[in-house]
Design a protein around this nucleic acid. Sequence first.
RNA 1: GGGCCUGUAGCGCAGCCUGGAUAGCGCAUCUGCCUUCUAAGCAGAGGGUCGUGGGUUCAAAUCCCAUCAGGCCCGCCA
Length: 556
Amino acid sequence: MDYKEEVLKLLSKFVKDPILEIPPNPELGDYAFPCFSIAKVQSKSPNEIAKELVAKLKPNKYVNKILVMGPYINFFINKDILAGAAIKNILEKKDSFGKSNIGKSKKQMIEFFHANTHKGVHIGHIRNICLGESISKILDFSGYNAIRANYQGDIGPHVAACLWGLLNMQERVPKENKALFLGEIYSKVNELMKNDKKIQEGVREINKKLYSGDKKIVSLWKKSREWCLKDFNKIYKDFGVKYNKLYFESEVEKDAIKISNNLLKNKIAQVSDDAVIIDLKAYDLGVAVLLTRYGTPVYHSKDIALAVLKSKQYKLDKSIHVVAKEQEFYFNQLFKMFEIIKSPLANKSLHLIYGLVMLPEGKMSSREGNVVLYKNLINKIKEETLKETQKRHKWNAKKLEEVSNKIAFSALKYSMLNRENNKIILFDWKTSLNFEGDTGPYVQYAYARASSILKKSKNKLNPDYLLLKDPFELKLVKHMSNFPFIVREAATHYRPDIIANYTHNLAQIFNEFYHNCAVISEDKPLEAARLSLVKATMQVIKNSLNLLGISVLEEM
RNA sequence: GGGCCUGUAGCGCAGCCUGGAUAGCGCAUCUGCCUUCUAAGCAGAGGGUCGUGGGUUCAAAUCCCAUCAGGCCCGCCA
C-alpha cells in the first residue's frame, strides 16, 4: 500500500496522468495537485478549476481531507493509517522494499571500469567502477537483468610503451606492487619518447611484434599483464563487483583486422594515407580509423569486433558503455558505424556519459603521470577512518580495521556517486577525507545509532501505529514511502546520485527524529511503536545504501 | 572553426527532463546543546542579480533564442 498511489487513484478519475507535488510546508498537506495545466486547456482560472475538482473528489479511508488552497488541491493522508501502512509494508518486504519489475527481465549489458593494463589505476577509474556497479544494482533491483562486463585494454601502443621500458630501462622489478611499478614505467617511457624518434620507433616495433606473436615479447607481455590483472581482481573485490564477463582487447584484435579487411572489400571502408578508414563526414562525424598504416587495429575496429562477440554470447536488449564524456564523439562514430554495417547492437547501444575526475591542476593523464592513484587515495582514507574509529572505540585491531575499512569505502564510493553524472568532479584531498554532512559515513552513522537503540530496548510489545503522530515521525514515514519512486527515477535515468541524495536526506530526517523523539522511555507502548519506525528506517537506509554498493554498520 | 557538457551563497552541490506556493542541502564561519537511545550528531545565525541579455507565459532557476565564461572532443592512443 502506498498513499501517493491512493491520491493518484483518486485524482485519475478526473485528470489524465496527474502529477503530484509535495507542498512546501507539511501543514499545507501531504500531496498537492496544481491546477494550472488543466486551467490552460480549459481556459479557466486555476482557482476555479480547483474548486470544481475538489467538489468531485471524495475523501476515503486513506485520504481523509482534501482542501483547496488557491490554485492547489491539497491532500491530507489519514494520519491514523499513514505510519502503520508504510511501516508494515517496509518490514514485510524487507530487502525487497523498493524493488520493482519495470525492467521485465530485459537483458542490459553494462560495460564498466575499462582500466587498461600496464597503466596506473586512478580515481577516474574509481568513479567509473562505482557508477557501473551502482547502476547495475539499480537495474537489477528494477527488474532488469544486468550483465556486468569489463572490456580491458591489455594490448596496443600503451602496452608496447611499457614493455619497451621493461626491456630497455633496466629498472628492477619490485617484489610487491608490480602493477604500480608498470604504471610508473609507462609514464616514464612517455616522457622519454616525447622528443625521441628512436624510442617511438622502438615502441612501434614492439607493438607490431606483439600483434604478430613474437615469442619473447609475448611472454614478457603475458607475465606483466598478469601482475595487472591480479591487481584488478583485488579492485573488483574492493568494490564488490562480480563480472559476468571479462573481455580483452587482445581477444578481438584478430577479428578486428578481419572485419576491417572485409569492410574494405565491400567498399564500406577505404584506404586513406595508408590507413583503413570509414568516412563518416556525411553524418558530421569525421573519419574513423580502423587499421593504422602499420596494419594494427585501433579501438574502432576492436569495438566493432567486440560487438560481434558480445552478440554471439548474449541476446542483449541493450548494451551500455560507462565511459567518460571525453569519448562522446568516439561513441557517436561507433554507433553510426554499427548502423552502417548492420551490427546486431545497432540502435541498442548507449554511451552512458559521466564527467571526468579532474585535479586542481587540470586533467589527469597516465601518460604524464599526474594522477591520483587509487591505492594512495584509499590508503589515506583508511588511515583517517582508522584514527577516527580508534578515538571512539576500544576494539581489537581486527575489528578496528574491519569497521574503519567499511567506513573508508563508504566515504569513497559515496563521493563518487553523489553528483549528477555529467558533473565534473574536482578532486581535492580535504573533501575526500571529510566524513561529515553529505557523506557516506554520515548515513552509516544514522544507521549505527538506530541499531544501537534496538540493541538497548527489550520491548517486545506489538506496535500500535496509531501512536505515531508526531510531525518528526510522520516526516520520516512519508520520506521512506517515497523510496520506490526514487528507485524508479534512478533506474530510468541511470542516476545513482538520485539515490545518494535521497539516502542523505533520509539520514537527516532520521537524525531530526532521533534528537526530538526519545525512543526508549517509560511509555512502553509508544516505545514499541517507535521501535518499529526505527527498524523500518534501518531497512530503507540499508536498501538504498546497498544500491550504492555501500554496506551498513551496526556500530561505528 | 564545429560539436557536446557545465555555470544556482566564499567553496562543493540538488532542483531544470515534466514551468507554479517563502529557491533547498552539505562544507566553511559564528552561537548554543554530551549526568538522557553513539556529538562522524542536533538546533540557530549570517551568506543568493539562479552567468548575462532578450523572448514565450497569468507565472521562468526550469522552456526558446542570443551571448559570455570554464571544461572536454573533433583520422592513425583508448
